[in-house]
Amino acid sequence: MTTASRVDVPTTAGDMPAHLWLPEAGSGPGILLLQEIFGISRYVEQRASDLAGLGYVVLAPEIFWRLGVSKVPEGPDMLEEAMGLLPRLDWDAAVDDAAAALGHLRGLGSVTGPVGALGFCFGGGLGFALAAREPVDALVSYYGSALPDLLGLSPQVTAPSLHQFGLADSYIPADTVARIEDAVAGPEVEFCTYEGADHAFDNPDLPMHHPEASEQAWAATERFLATRLPVGPAGG
């Protein structure tokens, strides 16, 4: 059985709240889980539990903590409220906080193997920026919303990576997805696209959810992680 707890991650601006999931074994490789724009939502918590069920130690920091936000309340104004947070967010500070969380995760006694990053939407772009700056053993980015503006960092992202995009994304047009694919291409990069899938297709709590794409993308994620962050004797 997996277990979840709240922890504090020291940063230059104080302690950042975070959430930690341990696998049944109590130890394993680490995954830094980076939130979507809705914060540590029910969906993020579920995916963290899924990853812990695969044998990973999962840390999900509250990246909006400097704005006093853990998660955006569900409701009809959810998207508008979440989008209103982004102009107030200090991107460089968010990358700093993600780096602090990565270092904290690496230092946990329960982490006994490699450490990767996995992010959704906002977190997908944040994970890419983090991987350009800090050593991570693997990166999984779901429809990274900031990626079109971060492609200049591509040469610095040397970790094995998996990118997942829907080809009916309302925020990232298919031609932009193709541009991203060209920019990040390399021998250690996997790039998966899904016909008919919108932005946030993996989130069952949103109207853009695409069950078939979600299932296929999660299967690709599990395969990628099993190779790059193996659990067990080879991985921890």
Rank of each mutant, 00 (worst) to 15 (best):
V69Q: 05
G196R: 07
A131V: 07
I40P: 00
E195R: 07
V9C: 00
P207E: 01
D149A: 15
H210W: 03
A99Y: 04
A219Q: 11
T227L: 12
T176V: 15
L59T: 10
V69M: 09
G186E: 13
T176Q: 14
D169P: 01
M1P: 08
G107E: 10
Y194L: 11
I37M: 14
G28K: 07
I40K: 04
F165I: 15
A185Y: 03
P160V: 02
A213D: 03
A101M: 09
F120L: 15
S161R: 13
A99G: 13
A138W: 00
I63T: 10
W65V: 10
P17Q: 10
G236S: 10
L34H: 05
A94K: 05
R6E: 14
H209I: 01
E212Y: 02
A98Y: 00
I37W: 04
P73T: 07
R179M: 15
G28A: 08
Y171V: 14
M1D: 06
S161M: 14
Y171N: 11
Q216I: 09
M208R: 01
G103W: 02
A99V: 12
A93E: 11
P114Y: 00
A13I: 01
Y142V: 13
G144Y: 03
G116K: 03
K71M: 13
L20P: 02
T176A: 13
D137P: 06
A220H: 10
F64L: 10
R66I: 09
P135C: 11
A185P: 06
P23W: 10
T112Q: 07
V44R: 02
P233C: 04
T193M: 06
T158A: 14
E62N: 08
